[in-house]
Design a protein around this nucleic acid. Structure first.
Length: 293
DNA sequence: CGCATCCCCTGCCTGC
DNA sequence: TGCAGGCAGGGGATGC
């Protein structure tokens, strides 16, 4: 599920349970997710206080008071839920009484408050690690990563420099985390629709011969920002009931304009097109061939 | 180097 | 109702 807006919403949802609180123990149901947990994982986390939770690209980061950072990536199917131990839940519940919902609980953080933060991930494409704060930017996961799409570093000039000469389709260029970090399949489709740009167009075609951005590239930057901003807003507005009755985090309803709407009419008022689905780099792209050129 | 393809894993939906 | 096949919002590894 999670792209940047979902991770941002997860981080906000986890703050009350984790920020400023100490982790008293960590339980791992298995030695790995996508990658093995590092050997020192539990040692670093046990007894540490989380000073702040933040997001970088699609990573959730927990700064610890011992100088380390907990890195969490939710992959395709990762989610968190928060639950109190006081009520019906038994302390040992993590390792037995596995229902359909708890089958893929892989990590449990026990907070000093008595709250449990549980990571569930059926497909196990997510992963966690720990790194010293001062080494974070040099860490393999972050050293080659692109700009934050909602930060000042994303501009038409920046994209013109990165797209210049690129023969890949727009879809692939926007999914490339080395250029912009945090966009995923859904929001790339949505941003291209808003900017009226075909996902099949070559990235370089939005750069002028003198290397300056075209008007359409300016429009694309605006579209990326607005699509993500709207999605975060939708997540935020659902945040008040964001921790559901079962404590689950991470999902909120958001209407998409083209994603998963193959065969439906293009929602643009003045457009008579129909949404098409094509496959690009092995993944579904949805777009309107009439208004996206 | 850039780019395409395959792969990791489980669950869910479709069609036969 | 069972079962095969396709698909899923992540990205890493490999080979050209």
């Amino acid at each position: 599920m999670p792209e940047l807006p979902e991770v941002e919403t997860v981080v906000r949802g986890l703050r009350p349970a984790m920020e400023r609180h100490r982790i008293v123990s960590v339980r791992l149901a298995r030695p790995d997710l996508r990658f093995p947990f590092p050997d020192n994982f539990s040692d670093i986390l046990t007894g540490a206080r989380i000073t702040s939770l933040s997001r970088r690209a699609k990573y959730a980061l927990a700064d610890l008071d011992n100088g380390w950072v907990l890195i969490m990536h939710l992959g395709m199917s990762g989610s968190f839920r928060v639950q109190d131990t006081s009520a019906e839940t038994q302390p040992g519940q993590f390792h037995h009484e596995r229902s359909k919902d708890t089958l893929h609980d892989h990590v449990r953080f026990d907070m000093e408050t008595g709250t449990q933060v549980i990571y569930n991930d059926p497909r196990r494409f997510g992963y966690m690690s720990v790194v010293e704060r001062r080494a974070l930017e040099q860490h393999k996961l972050f050293s080659g990563i692109g700009v934050e799409p909602l930060g000042n570093a994303l501009s038409a000039d920046y994209l013109a420099a990165r797209f210049n000469g690129k023969q890949v389709p727009m879809k692939a260029a926007l999914l490339d985390q080395r250029i912009i970090a945090g966009l995923g399949n859904i929001y790339v489709c949505e941003a291209l629709w808003r900017a009226r740009i075909s996902p099949r167009r070559k990235a370089a075609s939005l750069v002028r011969r003198d290397g300056r951005p075209t008007q359409r590239l300016h429009a694309l930057v605006d579209a990326v920002r607005s699509v993500l901003g709207d999605a975060i807003e939708a997540g935020g507005s659902s945040l008040r009931d964001y921790v559901h009755a079962d404590g689950s985090l991470g999902y909120f309803q958001h209407a998409f304009s083209v994603y998963d709407r193959e065969g439906e009419p293009c929602p643009r008022q003045t457009c008579s097109g129909v949404i098409h689905r094509i496959v690009q780099s092995g993944r579904s792209t949805y777009y309107c061939p009439v208004c996206q050129r």
